[in-house]
């Protein structure tokens, strides 16, 4: 099924929860409201004509430009995105689903934005979400085990944030 058909299907079913789409992109994507991601994911996985049984990739992206000189050409509102790349082994089609989040919860720097977990839908999301939490700093609400996975457990900050400050030292090891 093409992305346009899937988009129509989702709009008919979820209405305003489908907040945007770019269907002429190289990899067409559909944007979903953050509070509806679990029900949309479950629908995408179980609906017989879609059957997106595989979550190929889950990535967090930080849209932010810390350098004021480059800000004029940046062209994006500051926000964080979570991107789901789905694939169906049955129908051999793929889809990109996006969720836009504020960079910080309630605008308070340091408070991670929240998003419901999809680890109940695809088991692999468990580790992918831990990685996105660790590196990009997204709080997946309801995740069974949201701990850092790649960085050390006592690491401070989320390295893939664009305004991340590299630590000067870590346990006596010099950084920078």
């Amino acid at each position: 099924m093409t992305a346009a058909e899937i988009h129509q299907n989702l709009v008919a079913r979820f209405g305003s929860k489908v907040t945007g789409a770019k269907l002429d992109a190289l990899d067409p994507w559909i944007e979903i409201a953050s509070d509806a991601i679990v029900e949309v994911s479950e629908y995408l996985k179980t609906e017989p004509s879609l059957r997106f049984d595989s979550l190929n990739n889950l990535s967090g992206v930080d849209y932010f430009e810390p350098d004021e000189k480059k800000l004029a050409k940046f062209g994006h509102e500051p926000h964080v995105e979570v991107v789901y790349h789905l694939y169906s082994y049955e129908h051999r089609h793929s889809l990109v689903v996006k969720v836009k989040l504020p960079r910080w919860k309630d605008g308070k720097a340091g408070e991670l934005p929240e998003l419901p977990t999809v680890s109940g839908v695809w088991s692999i999301a468990d580790w992918h979400e831990r990685e996105a939490f660790d590196l990009v700093g997204i709080n997946f609400v309801g995740h069974p085990n949201l701990r850092r996975i790649l960085c050390a457990e006592d690491w401070i900050g989320h390295p893939l944030r664009k305004d991340y400050d590299f630590p000067l030292e870590y346990h006596g090891i010099r950084g920078r």
């Binding site: 190929n56 990739n57 990535s59 992206v61 930080d62 849209y63 050409k73 940046f74 062209g75 994006h76 991107v83 790349h85 692999i124 580790w127 990685e131």
Partner: peptide, 25 residues
């Protein structure tokens, strides 16, 4: 299946270069 997710932004450096590892999964 090793996946690469690239976002360009009118610069030589990508805005995001994500490597999805097969062994990780």
């Amino acid at each position: 299946q090793m996946g690469f997710y690239v976002i360009g932004n009118d610069r030589a450096e990508p805005l995001r270069a994500r490597a999805k590892s097969s062994c990780f999964c």
